[in-house]
């Protein structure tokens, strides 16, 4: 008991260069849900107004594997940690959070750009789908980097004290 008394008490206040894992997850979740939700709403409106004609299914076939795995992981982890009181003690390096945030914003911008540039670059539903398929060339590698960084942040449970 005496040994336990000498140990420093766990503190939730992050030290310099460290951030609370909860706050990191929450910030990244806000970024992803906002960006993904925006693209989702645009795609829903486009589908309702037949912007893709008979190729609506192909458009969703591009969108779902582009955003849903990451969004699903974020929401699942947030839901799980909401019931786990121990998760609040974990910390993350601020620099790593910066990298993860940068990669996330970059990826969401590239996804949004693929849809928002359609009026300038395409004139038919076939061309829109073609543009989406072409974007997989650069979205694939960036998605790999994003998934790696977010996977560490949303799966890590290492606490500051340990």
């Amino acid at each position: 008991m005496a040994t336990a008394a000498r140990l420093p008490k766990p503190s939730n206040i992050p030290t310099d260069g460290l951030m609370s894992l909860d706050s990191v997850r929450m910030k990244l979740a806000v970024v992803w849900l906002t960006g993904g939700g925006l693209v989702l709403v645009i795609l829903v409106i486009q589908s309702l107004l037949s912007a893709y004609g008979t190729l609506t299914q192909e458009a969703w076939g591009w969108f779902l594997p582009t955003l849903m795995p990451t969004l699903g992981m974020i929401v699942t982890v947030l839901t799980y940690t909401a019931l786990d009181p121990l998760a609040s003690g974990s910390v993350v390096r601020r620099s790593f959070f910066g990298i993860a945030l940068f990669l996330s914003i970059l990826y969401l911008l590239l996804v949004s750009l693929t849809i928002l540039i359609q009026p300038f670059a395409t004139s038919s539903p076939e061309q829109r789908i073609g543009l989406m398929r072409t974007s997989n060339l650069w979205l694939g590698p960036v998605q790999g980097l994003v998934a790696s960084s977010l996977g560490v942040l949303f799966v890590s449970k290492q606490k500051k004290e340990s």
């Binding site: 409106i45 486009q46 107004l49 037949s50 912007a51 849809i115 009026p119 038919s124 539903p125």
Partner: peptide, 10 residues
């Protein structure tokens, strides 16, 4: 207006 029309409709 033209942009939004071209974005959401075909």
């Amino acid at each position: 207006s033209e942009y939004l029309r071209a974005l959401f409709t075909a």
